[in-house]
């Protein structure tokens, strides 16, 4: 056992990298669910974003363009879900699951020609002397731009939901679409916008996997990350700050256990791997024991269909 082999600096830095894809996807899903829509297609949108971003980055040689394409790809795919659930009133759970299956298939089709290619690299920002500081230089100032974007988005989403008029409208739609409709809010339009935003965020998260974290394209490479993002939203009881905590906790456990193993610490890997899920379940149990679904912070009209009757 040689714990000194683990560098805390590198550990925290790779923890942030490991958490970023799920953080992005979970933040997107948070906004979607806050508007009262349950989109279980996160996994499908992520992997579609992963291949769209990868393909465009390879073709243009520019990873920034790739990330934009990934967001666009994810948003477009989510619109299938949006149209089906908002206009044709299809079941959200079933449609979301179908979206995941569709996304997995579509991505492997799109990715046929991109196996084994190296994407253009997304460099870490060079902030001059700041990046040379011990510890904080690498942990705070030594990341690529997407990591900072994800943190900024986290704050922005918190501010939007809590402090802005538009955010209040979105929450109103999620809490009671009938009341919101009676007030003259455009329920469908707001929900469609939220769904598109969620798709774009999932796409970004997927692209972060294929362009930075791995970096390569492999079929099925999200390997369940979308489901973890969904779990994190529940774990966070629909709050942006806690989504950040949840994502970093999850990324942290993953990276930490791998590092501990590499250093030769004998530890029950199975339990560590399942701990994020166990914590989610525990949080759910504790919270639901305290009262109804409301006390969890779930939007009251989550997953319900809206049909304007008057």
């Amino acid at each position: 056992m040689d714990l000194s082999a683990i560098s805390p600096t590198l550990l925290v830095a790779s923890l942030m990298v490991a958490a970023t894809p799920i953080l992005l996807a979970a933040l997107g899903e948070l906004v979607v669910e806050k508007s009262g829509v349950l989109n279980l297609g996160v996994e499908g949108m992520m992997i579609t974003g992963a291949i769209c971003g990868f393909a465009v980055a390879v073709e243009t040689g520019n990873p920034v363009v790739g990330f934009f394409a990934a967001a666009l790809g994810g948003a477009l795919l989510s619109m299938i879900f949006g149209v089906l659930t908002q206009f044709f009133l299809s079941n959200q759970v079933a449609t979301g699951l179908a979206l995941t299956l569709f996304g997995l298939g579509l991505s492997s089709l799109l990715g046929q020609g991109y196996v084994g290619i190296k994407p253009p690299s997304t460099p870490r920002l060079n902030l001059g002397p700041l990046s040379d500081l011990p510890f904080v230089g690498r942990v705070v100032f030594g990341h690529d731009w997407v990591v900072y974007l994800s943190l900024i988005l986290c704050v922005a989403i918190w501010y939007f939901l809590r402090r802005t008029r538009a955010g209040l409208k979105l929450r109103a739609v999620g809490e009671s679409h009938d009341a919101a409709h009676a007030m003259g809010l455009k329920v469908r339009a707001i929900r469609l916008a939220a769904i598109a935003f969620g798709g774009a965020m999932a796409g970004l998260g997927g692209a972060y996997l294929s362009l930075v974290r791995v970096p390569q394209w492999t079929e099925g490479m999200t390997a369940g990350a979308g489901w973890i993002a969904l779990a994190i939203v529940v774990f966070a009881s629909w709050r942006a700050g806690r989504v950040l905590v949840g994502a970093y906790l999850f990324g942290g456990v993953t990276v930490l256990q791998l590092n501990l193993q590499a250093a030769g610490v004998a530890l029950p890997v199975e339990y560590l791997s399942m701990s994020p899920y166990l914590i989610t379940i525990a949080v759910l149990v504790v919270m639901s024991a305290r009262g109804t679904r409301r006390s969890l912070g779930a939007p009251a009209d989550l997953g319900k269909q809206f049909h304007a009757v008057h």
Binding site: I6, L11, S14, R213, V214, M221, A223, L258, A262
Partner: peptide
Amino acid sequence: FNIVWAFTWFDPAKEADAAKALIEQGA
């Protein structure tokens, strides 16, 4: 030999993380 058990056959992100952890520790 530094051995990391990934407990998966296929999870590119986790496999990449494991490789990085090993490399960071000097492999």
